[in-house]
Structure formats: C-alpha cells, structure tokens
Design a protein around this nucleic acid. Structure first.
Length: 945
DNA sequence: CGGTTCACG
DNA sequence: GACGTACGTGAACCGT
C-alpha cells in the first residue's frame, strides 16, 4: 500500500494539481510558546513536538492536495548575513528546552511520510518561494501554510497563503489590510518601513502606513527614491535621500529568493499515506497515546492491515473464526478491558428492552477488540421466555439456562465501574454502529463514552444513500462488504404477537447475536475508515459529521418542552372545525362519504358534480385531488372543494401535530425528544423523526399556533437564530454570479433586485406581482429550474415561463455556466461535491429516460447548494457549544431545522445567547457574500421566530 | 405496503 | 419533437 498511485487521492480532471508547502519553523516557535512544558518519560521536552504533531495531523486530515512538503530553516546564518551582518542579529538563542526538540520534530514529519526540506544558507521562506515558483510553472496551484507576513509577497496568481492558527486564508485583500498595498508591492513597503524584529533597517521615520502611501503614490521604491526631492515634508525628504541605499539593502533583505538550487526536487513531494508502524512507533515513543487513537484508521490503517498486499476483507472475514465470550464475572471483564486498552480501538454495542433511545433500558453490552474476538456482558436479563411457545433456534430450548429464574450476571454497578475509565480513555477509540443510540443508553447508567467513531456515519459519508441495495444498517453493510448474513433480530426475539424483548432472550443466544454486532462493527470500521483518505472524505467526516454525533446526542437528550394543555385546547378547537366542515361538505355533496379518501372525493367531484380536473396523479393516473387542483376549483366559485381544503388543513394539524405530539411527551422529562438522522438524506442535511420536529407548521395562522406549545422552562427563553436566504447566497458564491453577489453585499431586497434587472422596473415601488415572479425564479434556480416547473408554480403558460428563464440567464449568465458544469461533473463522476467536499451521489444521471435524467440533473444542481448550506449550519453547530461556554453562557442547543437553530437559555442570558449564536452562525463559512442571521427571543417558539 | 397528500426547509 | 417535473425530507391515512 505504499505505491503513490494507490495512496495519492485521484486527481480531479477538472482542477489542477495542488501543492501544500508548510512553513515548519514558524510552527515550531508558535507551538513552543503556546503549549505548557511537557516531557516524555526519558525527560526530553516535547511540547513543541506535540504542537507540530497535532498540526500535521490536522493539516493532513483537512487538506486534499496531491503534493505536500514541510520546510525548515537550517542554522542561523544565511546569505542575508553577507548583505547585512546584523540581519536577525538581535534574535535571542532558542530556549534551551526547545533545542533538543528540533531533531525530533523532523522525525515527526518523516513519521507522517511527508517530505521535509531545509538548506544551509537559506531561510525556509526562500525555499518556499522557489518551490512555489517551480510549481506555478507546471500549472500546480500552491497553498503556503504560514502566518509569517514575510510570505505575503508570494500571494496571488495561483499561490494562496493559509494562516494555520486562525485557519483563515490570506488573500490579496488581507495583504492589503496588513500592508496597505497589493502583494506585488509588499517588498517595497517593507523596504521603507523596515522590521525591528529582523533588524531590517528601512528608512527612519517611515512606518507601514507612510510607506504604503508613498508606494501607492509613486508606484515603486526605485521611482520613489529617484523622485524623493518632490516630497513635501522636509524631514521625510531628507531621510529618503540620505537612506536611499539602506532602503535598497532592506529590499534585498526582505525579497525572497525564488531561484535557490533546492536540495530536493518538487517531484518527490507526492503525498503518501503514513507507514502505520513508523507513525505508531513515533507516537508511542513520545508518549502521544491520545493522538494514536486519532490517527488509527484515519491516517493509517488499523494494525495488521498495512503491510504487504491490500487487505482482503472477505478473506479476513472468512478467516477470523468467531470466538465469542460471555462475561459474567469481574475477573473476565477486567481481562477484556485490558485487551481493549492494549488494542486502542474497540467496538461497542448495547442491547436494550425497547427501541426508543430515550426510554429503553440497558440489557447488555457487547465489546469487540479484534475481528472475531468479541464478548457479551449480560446485565438486565430476566428469566428466559417460556421456550415452549417459541422455537427460536431450532433447538427448542434455552440451552443450559433454567427458564425459571434470572441468569447469573455481573451487577450493573460493578460493570459500570469496570468500564468507566476505558470508555472515557482518550487513547482508546470506541466504535459503534449508530453509536448515538448507545450513547443515550450508556449515559443513563452514568457512562461517558469518548472518543467515538460511527460506522453508519462512515458508510454514509463514503457511499451516500441509495448506493447499491439496502441502507446503512449493520446487516446491510455486513452483506454488502463481507457477504455475511447477520443473525436476524427476529431469530432471537421472534416477531409479531409472539415477539419478546431482549431481556427475555436466553444468554447463549443473546451472546451470539450481540457479540456478532460488535464484531462486525469493528470489521466494518477497519474496512471503511481507511477509505476516507483515499476518497478524500477525511475532512467531511472528521470536521462535520463525526463531531455532530456527540452533539446531536446531547440535543436529543435535552429535548424541548411542550405544553400539553396548549395542544389539547387546539385539538378541541380543530375537532369542532373538522366536524362542522364535514357536515357542510356532506350537505354540499348530497350524501356522506369519507373526505379523507382521495378516491371517494374524486368520485364526488368529477363524476357526481361533473367538475373538470386538470391533472392526473403521477403513478396510477388517478384523477388528482391535490391542493392545487382544489384551489383552482375553489377559485372558479365551487364551495365544496374550498371546504375540503379547510377540512384537510385541520385534519392534518390535528392528527399529525396536536394529537400526536401530546403522546410524544416523555413522562420523565416533560419534554419531547426527537431523533436526528445523520445518514438519511442525499444532500447532507439532517432529518428528524419520532417525532419529526423539522416540519412543525408555521405557514398558516392556525398551524402557527402549534408552535405556541413549544415553550421554554420557567425563567428561561427560547432563542431562534436562522440564516437569511442561505441557499441563494450559496448560489451567488458557488456560481460566482457578480450581480447577485453585489446585491447581497448591499443588503438589498434580493427578489426585488432580481425583478428589477429582469423586467427593467425600478426597485422603488416594485409591482408585487413582478417581485413574486422573481422570487419564484430565484427558488427555481436553486431547484434546477425548468420551464414546466416554473409555469406550474406561477400558473402561467410554459412559453412565458421560458421567456422569464431566458431573461434570467441573460441578466445572470454565470448561472448557466454553473448548471452545465455541475451536470458535467455529475455525469463524469456519478456524484457532485459541496463547497466543503461532501459527495452527493447522482443516480440516474445517465438514464435513457429523459424524465429520469432530467430529475437527476435537477437534483445534481440542487445538491451542492442544499448540501453546502447543510455543511455550513453543521459547522456552526459544532462551534456553538464552546463559543457559549467561552462567553460564560449556559444555553443549550435544542433543535436544528435546516437553516435555523433553537436554543434555550435562562432569561438573563437570552439576549447574549442570541448574539453568540448570530456571531457563530454568520462566521461559520467565509463566502464571497455575507451570511446574515436573524434572531428572536421569546417564551415560545411561535414568538421567537 | 405502495400511493396520495401535506407539514417543513 | 416528444417526454411532462420544480429540490430535500417524515407522517398520517387510504385501500389493497
């Protein structure tokens, strides 16, 4: 697995190669000064080593460049000392506990299998400048990772600078902010202003501000010095004349050499995956055990798989003889804990007596430490079910277990105490399949679990939804990847009326079922996690979806308070309205019928009353009774369809919301706890179910009242913070639509601006009809516009809709380019990527059926937009808890509704909480358009919005 | 269990 | 020139 062609990420045909150059020396000093002293067991100080190591890990996880190298200074003397003996002369010697770390840091770089370059007589910056130039000549895009201002002169023309501390790109704008001039004039400004810390003399009396002003006025240093006599201020004129040579010398000192005869060729910087053993040895030698767990399976394959030929998971699965153990005493448990500790990676799974994560009780825990090596710890098993009724395993019995009494089990407290340290050990990675569920169960017995990986999320990030048969269930994945059929739940618990809960399952069967789950979760982890690197999905998994797992767990645990009295009152109101409307509809029809049956309703409308329906349903060709059809009929003056529309609205509100939500209130907490789905959508959005709290009504007045039942605790407030127009802003950014970007920069009414440009009407006093049409088109763009869709939405002829679209493309031509490029990308790869690298699969993109193909194309156009917005709010969510803590606030995040976050906070903190949320959300992505966040604070969700 | 409808973004 | 849909979800209900 060391050949570059298998480890280097596949180069994207549409984008140039990329090179990342890291200013290693800059890192060393920052790491040294920002970290407390640390030593390894032999006494060697390692704080800077640790800092550089974590930096490298993060960098390698986040970046997806094909070439990478770390550049260091070598020795203090360089050619600059020949020009100016005092150059950097005042620099103190490196601290004595830093000196021994220099060689170890180079070891660190090599342990990550990253090229490491330094050269006598030159600074790291000169080597960086040289490599950057060489790369540019080959058409390779360059990212320089450094916060050194001296490197700013390189920015532009395919060279970007990245500040690793603030993780923010430094472009021409940032350079201008710092030096008052563009990157090409930076050396001139530095030559005049000098640099006290490097002993670059410059010209006395001139700082960065004045230098920038002078260079801007005269163009460059030579012109300025030649025309110094024109300067008005006498002192400044004198100094520029007297110190002209010194200024030229200074320029030579600050100008980076890009023609160094570098010691290593650019070709050798191809990215290679680390050698597992070397990296593992390095981390262990330096006592960085917690880092080992982080790289295990991410940057390096898990033990035993990284040597020789590529791992064959099928062979491995067949070879590993399952050896499952029942844990019934403390001694055996200790042995398993020790084994897990030594392995550094383990799988964990819980068995419970119910499905609901918030209500289920713990019945047992299974652990796996190696393929085929797993155990089950029964904890809550009761007397086995009467085996006479169930022929569960074909053997017709519960093995050696006496069905009359509960089996021998470790006391829960003993087990919890025995597992506590292991489960929170930062050096031991805990892998689960949908581990959010297990985190809930374990939290309720007092067990904290960290760090965690989730094979369901890994599978989702890598393979998306709908790739191949089945979903992301453990059984699906075991079949797909290992050709292994898991023991079905039904086989141990039965189904239907005879179904038993897991606590009634005999221990021998419970063992094989439960241990198999943990076993295959671990095998899956070893298979999937290394794929992240090869398939360029490390950043999406590590920075977006993985951190969301514990966060969503706490959100689900928090729940949201719902007032049953409000809901019951609404139910009564709606019931009355429904009854009245039903009587009215029956009277108008002339006979009773089931209004809720589209079939019966169609008979009444189209056969008995003789009305004309425009549309048929898609699948069966039945006459449609959808809301748009009924609205047309109502608009023609027919009462019955109008009443049916009202009836439907209230029936929906009552059955789906006011009646159902009361049942969802957890009796223990008085709150409603949804489950957020992290792996359900094709775009990267979350979903919400049991109950769905992402579709609580708001669009009608009656529906909105339901939000009045979502309340804060006494003395608290709900805070709602939502992105304004995030998807349209993302379109403007991603498709680089100048006119749209300008409009967002001016904070204008975006739909009115669109209307103004398309229809040539002034924004002031815009005809509401024109604005409405522009708004529909803007939405259409997000959905991958079609003339038919727009025509239907606006109830206009298709020719007219096409004319609108043509006008839009004329006004915003970049959108057409974006749409075509996105479709091409989907056809070429079978997926499109969001701004942050998430893959959205586009099945059907090459379908022969033009209908299917069109559907896939529109989905492909929509995916980067919807998915990009999903990525951004995920980033905000991940940053929010620490931002709140740092601000001294105790607010809890409760809900996410795609572009909105709902928090709960003590009344006194509510306004500040809203500001923190606004700040974090607005700053969650650096787009070329501003992100605007609206907030509201109130005792109920209805009023907070 | 597929189809229809409708709640949300 | 026909094809005939706006993108993404989850839940309730009907009817087979």
């Amino acid at each position: 697995m060391t050949a570059p062609d298998t480890t280097a990420p596949a180069s994207d045909a549409t984008s140039p190669d990329r090179l990342t150059l890291v200013d290693g020396s800059g890192y060393i000093f920052r790491a040294y000064h920002s970290l407390p002293p640390m030593t390894r067991p032999d006494g060697t100080p390692v704080n800077a080593v640790y800092g550089v190591t974590t930096m490298l890990m993060k960098l390698l996880a986040d970046m997806d460049a094909e070439h990478v190298a770390v550049i260091f200074d070598k020795g203090r003397r360089t050619f600059r000392n020949d020009l100016h003996p005092d150059y950097k002369g005042h620099r103190p010697d490196a601290p004595e506990d830093l000196v021994p770390q220099f060689p170890v840091i180079r070891e660190a770089v090599r342990a990550f299998n990253v090229a490491c370059v330094e050269m006598e007589g030159f600074e790291a910056d000169d080597l960086i400048a040289t490599y950057a130039r060489q790369a540019r000549e080959k058409g390779i895009a360059v990212t320089v990772v450094s916060s050194d201002k001296d490197l700013m002169q390189l920015v532009g023309d395919g060279v970007a600078l990245l500040d690793p501390m603030k993780n923010r790109p430094i472009g021409p704008d940032e350079v201008r902010e710092k030096f008052g001039v563009g990157p090409d004039k930076v050396v001139d400004v530095q030559a005049l202003a000098g640099d006290a810390s490097d002993n670059v003399p410059g010209v006395p009396g001139i700082g960065v501000k004045t230098a920038a002003q002078l260079i801007t006025e005269y163009g460059d240093l030579d012109t300025l010095l030649a025309r110094a006599g024109e300067i008005k201020q006498p002192k400044r004129r004198q100094n520029l004349t007297d110190f002209a040579d010194q200024a030229r010398l200074s320029r030579d000192l600050v100008t980076l050499r890009d023609d160094v005869d570098v010691p290593a060729p650019l070709d050798g910087f191809g990215r290679k995956a680390p050698e597992g053993d070397a990296l593992r040895a390095f981390l262990m030698d330096n006592g960085f055990k917690s880092l080992l767990a982080k790289v295990e399976g991410t940057l390096i394959p898990t033990p035993g798989e990284d040597q020789g030929a590529a791992p064959d998971p099928l062979a491995e699965a067949r070879a590993a003889e399952a050896a499952y153990t029942l844990v019934q005493d403390a001694e055996t448990l200790r042995a398993w804990v020790a084994e897990a500790q030594a392995a550094g990676v383990m799988a964990i799974d819980t068995e419970t007596d119910a499905l609901s994560a918030m209500r289920a009780g713990l019945v047992g825990i299974s652990l796996a430490v190696a393929p085929g090596r797993a155990c089950y710890i029964p904890l809550g098993h009761r007397a086995a079910a009467d085996s006479g009724q169930l022929d569960l395993d074909g053997g017709g019995g519960g093995g050696t277990i006496d069905p009359g009494e509960a089996p021998r089990q470790l006391p829960l407290d003993t087990c919890v105490a025995g597992l506590r340290d292991l489960l929170r050990d930062p050096g031991v990675l805990k892998v689960g399949h949908n581990i959010k569920y297990d985190l809930h169960i374990l939290a309720r017995v007092g067990l904290e679990v960290t760090p965690v990986d989730d094979t369901m999320v890994l599978s989702y990030v890598l393979d998306g939804t709908g790739q191949g048969p089945g979903g992301h269930g453990l059984d699906d994945l075991a079949r797909r990847h290992f050709e292994h059929t898991m023991i079905p739940f039904k086989a141990v618990c039965g189904s239907g009326k005879a179904q038993i809960t897991f606590d009634r399952v005999p221990l021998d069967q419970a063992l094989t079922y439960a241990a198999e789950d943990a076993d295959y979760t671990l095998r899956l982890h070893r298979l999937l996690k290394p794929r992240l690197l090869d398939e360029r999905m490390v950043a999406v998994y590590e920075t977006l979806d993985r951190p969301l797992v514990p966060l969503l767990t706490t959100m689900e645990q928090a729940g949201v308070k719902v007032d049953p009295l409000v809901l019951r009152a609404l139910s009564r109101t709606f019931a009355q309205r429904i009854a009245d409307l039903e009587a009215e509809v029956h009277r108008l029809a002339g006979h009773p019928f089931n209004i809720g049956s589209p079939k019966q309703l169609a008979t009444v409308l189209f056969d008995e009353m003789g009305l004309e329906s425009g549309r048929k349903s898609a699948k069966t060709g039945a006459k449609s009774t959808g809301a748009d059809v009924l609205e047309d009929l109502a608009a023609q003056g027919h009462d019955l369809p109008a009443r049916v529309l009202d009836w439907r609205q209230f029936a929906k509100l009552k059955s789906t919301y006011t009646d159902a939500l009361v049942e969802d209130i957890n009796p223990d907490t008085g709150r409603v706890h949804t489950t957020f789905g992290l792996t359900g959508t094709s775009t990267g959005r979350l979903s919400s179910n049991d109950p769905n709290l992402q579709n609580i009504p708001i669009r009608t007045e009656e529906g909105r009242r339901i939000r009045g039942a979502f309340v804060a605790e006494p003395g608290h407030r709900l805070i709602s913070a939502d992105y304004s127009q995030i998807e349209l802003r993302l379109v403007a950014h991603v498709a680089d639509i100048k006119a749209l970007k300008d409009a967002f920069h001016h904070g204008a009414d975006i739909h009115a601006i669109t209307a103004s440009r398309m229809f040539g009407a002034p924004v002031e006093g815009m005809d509401p009809m024109l604005r409405r049409r522009a708004k529909a088109i803007n939405f259409g763009i997000i959905y991958g516009i079609s003339a038919f869709g727009l025509a239907r939405q606006l109830s206009i002829p298709r020719g007219e809709a096409q004319a609108f679209i043509d006008a839009y493309f004329k006004e915003f031509p970049e959108i057409l380019t974006y749409m075509e490029a996105t479709k091409a990308e989907a056809r070429q790869h079978g997926f499109v990527r969001t701004l942050f690298g998430r893959k959205c699969w586009t099945p059907g993109i090459t379908d022969k059926n033009p209908n299917m193909k069109g559907l896939a194309e529109r989905a492909a156009i929509n995916a980067p937009i919807q998915g990009g917005a999903a990525d951004i709010i995920k980033r905000a969510m991940i940053r929010l808890p620490s931002a709140l803590t740092e601000a001294g606030l105790s607010a809890r995040l409760l809900l996410q509704v795609h572009d909105e976050l709902i928090l709960e906070a003590p009344e006194a903190e509510a306004e500040r909480t809203a500001e923190v949320a606004r700040h974090v959300m607005a700053g969650a992505a650096a787009l070329s358009v501003p992100l605007v966040v609206d907030t509201g604070v109130a005792p109920t969700w209805a009023d907070a919005h």
